[in-house]
Design a protein around this nucleic acid. Structure first.
Length: 596
RNA sequence: GGUUCCGUAGCUCAGCUGGAUAGAGCAACAGCCUUCUAAGCUGUGGGUCCCAGGUUCGAAUCCUGGCGGAAUCACCA
């Protein structure tokens, strides 16, 4: 049993023995002891003093005496209302020796438990390449999938591609007009970038038209609607919806280019999906659902033919589901997608990793599904994350104020290569080996930079200042891991091995205990990260662990330690630290090089 | 205007359901490599936790009201 549970149980027993009743288990508050005080864990006695009818110090003393009888507690001290408990060192050595060999320590493996969970992320539009905002989405979605898996769920990762609509028609129109029949290959570009350029061409020309109309005295809103280019785009959308073969094949061709480009970016990011949905498929189902809702009388049709969900009874507004011309909107497609997924996977939970700009949308989506009578409506959960902003504010693709995903990835890897060369760390390795390590470091820096931030918060990225490789960064943690690998290898080469058995009662330093305590916390952090869908919690723990380990490494000899029991413990501690770093970073989708 | 989220060191961020003297990293400065990887370690300076009230043994954390910022409320996605 874990030490916190042991102590909590003992406190309960104390109250029972003294014929006192604890109104609430949560009054037993156990936390880590702060660095500046002696002890390992702390019981907060303030909540208990009233029940004991004693002063905080008296209550603490009495509880301390009682808890000291536990074999795991060696000493205690009371400062104000805080009872600091010193854990018997054999508890730590026992824990470390027991756990050291478990490579997957902290991960719950529940094969075939049937608890299926679905995670949607990425959800790109097919009219432009991915940017930094998409990177955050992809990394979060992928990491959260891994974390849920580590908590024992069977996870299905799904992507929903927005492959239809007016924005796609804009790129198609631009290509027809100005593309000269060129392909991405002709242009020497990735397909998604090539199509993205068509989108820019359209927007530029369109803006010009609008400006001319406005100069001629038209109001801006009107000009936007009446501009000839927009009219053509709309006409193309109509032809697409009518199944015009020419438009359709152009649509397939250009989307194909984009998918080829996306695949490259996804591979670089290291993300993958179990199933990809396309809105061009799901919007049919969405429409059908809306028709059914009309028949059931849950939805209402207005005189102009548009269909609405009335959510005024739920404290919200009315929501449009079909336009007066019968075409579908975003919500319609999402209704269809949700129903199709439920049929495909029957998941107990459907997570949507989507930016917080769509908080309202997902609130409404859940309510409408509920109104329509789907009993699983409550299983939808929006994992809402904050925007990535530039120092100048929000990224705006129309103004060219975007950080392109492929560029950023390339820059990160380039920087990693330059630093490695400067430090001479990879001298003597083969080119392939070098490239692999450099790639891991560059991507590690990028991924960690994004994932260490609380998903709910907006974050700022400054393109002027490159992402760090020192301090609280991915490479710092990777470096610690590489050091451990090197240490363990050296130990093996020298025939020094960790004896499997518990080294018994040896004297531990503060640093050793602190490393052990962080390792001890790991399973709880994985659980908490799963509950809150926050990879940042894992990033935090792994960083603290790496930092503490580096201090330990600086202050203590491992292989050269002469006392074999101490040496054995330190090797085990290093081994387990390596496992936890690798597992933890693995849950962030970050690879660990063995040397760097 | 309504709703939601946010405001912590010069910058980027931690601070879990209220707990001790609010912490890291970056940047600046000063040290530590003939010893297991110096992408490391140690030290110094740096704070009105946006403001004002309230709740209580105790508030960066919870409540109310301001101020500042963001998102959203579309027959856009």
């Amino acid at each position: 049993m874990r030490i916190e549970a042991i102590v909590a149980g003992a406190v309960s027993r104390f109250f029972k023995d003294n014929n006192l009743t604890l109104p609430d288990q949560s009054m037993i508050q156990i936390q880590k002891t702060r660095k500046e005080f002696s002890g390992d864990i702390t019981l907060v006695v303030f909540p208990l003093m009233r029940i004991m009818k004693k002063s905080p110090v008296e209550a603490g003393e009495e509880l301390g005496q009682y808890l000291k009888q536990l074999p795991q507690i060696s000493d205690f001290n009371v400062i104000k209302g805080f009872l600091n408990l010193v854990i018997e060192q054999s508890y730590w050595t026992g824990f470390v020796s027991e756990t050291a060999s478990k490579e997957n320590y902290g991960v719950i493996e529940k094969p075939g438990s049937g608890d299926t969970v679905l995670v949607e992320f990425s959800s790109p539009n097919t009219n432009k390449p991915l940017h930094l905002g998409h990177i955050r989405n992809n990394l979060l979605g992928y990491s959260i999938s891994l974390i849920l898996e580590a908590n024992g769920s069977e996870v299905k990762k799904v992507n929903l591609v927005n492959d239809r609509g007016i924005h796609i028609c804009k790129t198609m129109l631009a290509w027809e007009k100005w593309g000269d029949n060129r392909t991405p290959d002709d242009a020497g570009m990735k397909g998604d970038h090539f199509v993205g350029e068509m989108y820019v061409l359209f927007e530029d020309a369109y803006r010009k038209e609008v400006n001319e109309l406005v100069a001629g005295g038209m109001r801006v809103e009107q000009a936007r609607i009446e501009a000839p280019l927009m009219d053509e785009a709309r006409e193309m959308l109509r032809r697409w919806e009518a199944g015009d073969p020419g438009v359709y094949s152009l649509w397939e061709k250009m989307n194909g280019w984009v998918y080829e480009g996306f695949d490259v970016t996804y591979r670089r990011l290291g993300v993958s999906f179990d199933k990809i949905y396309y809105e061009s498929d799901t919007y049919h189902t969405g429409k059908k659902i809306v028709e059914e809702g009309l028949e059931k009388g849950v939805l209402k049709k207005r005189e102009d033919g548009s269909v609405w969900a009335d959510l005024t009874g739920r404290g919200l507004d009315e929501k449009l589901l079909l336009r007066s011309d019968g075409t579908s909107v975003y919500m319609t497609q999402d209704l269809g997608t949700a129903v199709m997924r439920q049929q495909d996977f029957n998941a107990g939970k459907m997570y949507y990793v989507v930016g917080n700009e769509q908080d309202y949308h997902f609130k409404v989506l859940g309510l409408i599904l509920d109104e329509l009578g789907y009993e699983w409506a409550g299983s939808l959960q929006h994992i809402s994350y904050g925007m990535v902003e530039l120092p100048s504010g929000k990224m705006k693709s129309r103004e060219g104020k975007v950080v392109d995903a492929d560029n950023l990835i390339e820059e990160m890897i380039e920087t990693a290569g330059r630093l490695s060369a400067e430090l001479g760390k990879l001298d003597g390795l083969s080119v392939e080996e070098k490239d692999e390590i450099i790639r891991k470091i560059g991507m590690g820096a990028l991924k960690y930079f994004i994932l260490k931030v609380d998903p709910k918060k907006n974050m700022i990225f400054n393109p002027e200042e490159s992402i760090d490789f020192n301090g609280n960064t991915g490479p710092f943690i990777q470096y610690t891991h590489a050091r451990i690998c090197s240490l363990l290898k050296k130990a093996e080469d020298n025939g020094v091995r960790a004896e499997g058995a518990d080294p018994g009662s040896i004297a531990l330093s503060d640093k050793e205990v602190r490393v052990a305590a962080l390792l001890h916390e790991f399973p709880d952090v994985i659980a908490e990260a799963g509950k809150t869908c926050s990879p940042a919690l894992i990033a935090n723990l792994v960083y603290n662990l790496a930092k503490e380990y580096n201090q330990f490494y600086h202050d203590h000899q491992v292989i050269k330690e002469s006392d074999s029991r101490v040496r054995s413990f330190r090797l085990q501690l290093s081994l387990l630290t390596g496992h936890v770093i690798r597992t933890g970073m693995g849950l962030l989708g970050i690879d660990m090089p063995e040397k760097m």
